[in-house]
Design a protein around this nucleic acid. Structure first.
Lengths: 340, 340
DNA sequence: ACAATTATTTCAAACGTTTGAAATGAGTTT
DNA sequence: AAACTCATTTCAAACGTTTGAAATAATTGT
């Protein structure tokens, strides 16, 4: 049932014995085209299943109505949820989205960037890989006048770029404050990989909450881990190695890390485990299945982060905001207290 | 720092004082072009950051080197993992991937299909929405000579399409067999939404394993649920409502459903909960955090499903397999027994 | 009936590439 | 010096669309 001649404007024009431009204008509902003509053209187009060729349109219009997203991976629910926000708003505004995973690999990120550049995306939203230090592959876009919005993972030192971030400082502050309010004095902080910049923002939130409440800070109560399990366990061992002076609460960088930590403490039958209250970033749906769930979660509102990123990007694309007028948008976190 | 004149072949040609075709051929490494010329062109291209315009190429070549994926959503790890397989193999073969979520909404699925059609994807991989009964929006592709591979969720009644499926019959058979081998006689089956076709394949796997082992079947031991929590609970109530004649094992359609079930049984303090052995489809990473984890999981190998889908699709695109020669590929499931 | 006005359609160029055919240029051979 | 090679470059058309300007057709006023 395969058609051999593709259905193009030209083909329609020949069928209808009129010019290509009339057909084009009729389909695009130009006011100068006679209503009856429009009807005939549209009917024929429908009948023959005419589908405009986007490549041709892009070429002519010099824009693709595609926006690109580069992110580390799709297995992290933060990112998949953020895409939801992007896609929703993009589609509403007539844009399509190409998602490309870097798998936290710089080489792959460069490849993704190049392919999106060749595809002439109208704008780019990117969460950089763990290893991105050099930004040549991303700067290309701005050099070609294509706006870039960094979201979540961004070059922290660089002020000359547009950013949309979770207000992770505030999230960690809230979490710490919450634990202090519940009477905890020895609150541990388990941070994430040090090269991810907001590890430090969270730490600052933690520190500031302590300070503002007159709770003394102790370096013994701070440890770091990457997402690796063994690493987490040894960090936890450091934090909890002193049985008579053990933390009573824990703020963790991300829930999977927290779960590993809790699991470990259970496995060694930590004496005060029941009294330890934990909070992690993420608000995973799986929490409801855990037997000793965290007392609360820091909800980072990824959909909102995504939505803010695409909103900003569209403003840049439409030149409603000047590209050199660098924006920084912060999305608040919300502390979700889980029912007992 | 925005360039005003875009760097095109023409622009390079003018700079180098040669014709557009020479530049094009030089960049594409034509043998008729002088080596020194090639060097000069390539150098200039690099220097000016020339990026070929994919829309123009697509238009000329009549192919996009893009393959489209439509799937219900990205929150289900089955799908995100399957994408991994697709992307990997696609990239290796010079194809890019556009992912579009239907959110299990038919209208959205139709929109996605149309946009991918306009983008002139070279092939389509699709897992249909729960509500897809009519396939006009997907048949369009085949009518235009664009191959379509259905994966996982597919029109079960339709033999005239290419399919890549998890061998869900075999997976459920294995799970049931495993439980029988462990001495269970009263094994419950908790199925998924009836409109998802492989709900029935799994049921058949269950039934056949019972039959092959001479274990009597009882309709009381079968219940269905969609992904809704209340629904699951009432299904579980039906299965376990008779305290003196309760199942000793359970095979569940999908792990989140299983987790809801277990959680409910705990919440009512079901007397024999400790003896009940459960298996679900999915092999979620979160299992390791559960206190009463399933004894085993049916691993559906989504990466492999994805990889098989893209492999088949590429063969169809390259006309190595005739489009009318409908293929059906089954990917085996693996039973993963969790350590105690 | 003829110009003037308005409605409608068509022309033609452009977007950035690719590619077979034709042209050019530099050597060779006679 | 004419004729022939061969290497290299250029021409020109094509892909499918959009759009301002020009052309044509239909309607109105006088």
């Amino acid at each position: 049932m395969t058609n051999n001649t593709p259905v193009t404007l030209k083909f329609l024009a020949e069928k209808l014995k009129m010019s290509v431009s009339t057909v084009s204008k009729a389909l695009n509902n130009y006011p100068t085209i006679n209503e009856y003509t429009k009807k005939r053209v549209q009917e024929m187009a429908r009948e023959l299943h005419f589908t405009p060729n986007k490549s041709a349109i892009n070429l002519k219009e010099k824009k693709s109505r595609i926006i690109g997203i580069i992110l580390p991976n799709l297995l992290d629910h933060f990112f998949t949820r953020s895409i939801y926000g992007v896609e929703q708003f993009a589609t509403q505004n007539g844009y399509n989205v190409i998602i490309s995973q870097s798998h936290d690999d710089l080489e792959k990120e460069i490849q993704s960037a190049n392919m999106l550049l060749r595809s002439r995306v109208d704008g780019l939203i990117v969460a950089i890989s763990k290893h991105t230090q050099d930004f040549a592959h991303l700067d290309q876009f701005e050099n070609m006048g294509i706006p870039v919005v960094y979201y979540t993972r961004n070059p922290s030192f660089n002020l000359s770029c547009h950013k949309v971030l979770g207000n992770t400082f505030q999230g960690c502050y809230k979490a710490t404050q919450f634990l202090i309010n519940r009477g905890h004095k020895k609150i541990a902080y388990l941070g994430g990989p040090k090269m991810i910049n907001f590890t430090h923002d969270r730490f600052n939130g933690y520190i500031n909450a302590l300070k503002d409440n007159g709770v003394p800070f102790s370096a013994d109560l701070v440890a770091y881990t990457d997402f690796d399990k063994e690493n987490t366990i040894s960090a936890i061992q450091n934090l909890f190695d002193n049985p008579q002076n053990t933390p009573t609460a824990l703020v963790a960088f991300k829930e999977p890390i927290l779960f590993d930590a809790i699991k470990y403490l259970r496995s060694i039958n930590h004496p005060n485990l029941d009294q330890i209250e934990c909070i992690g970033f993420g608000n995973t749906s799986f929490i409801s299945y855990l037997d000793s769930p965290p007392i609360a979660s820091v909800e980072e509102n990824p959909e909102s982060v995504g939505e803010n990123a695409i909103k900003l990007l569209l403003q840049l694309i439409n030149r409603e905001i000047d590209m050199e007028n660098y924006q920084k948008v912060m999305v608040d976190c919300k502390l979700i207290v889980h029912e007992a």
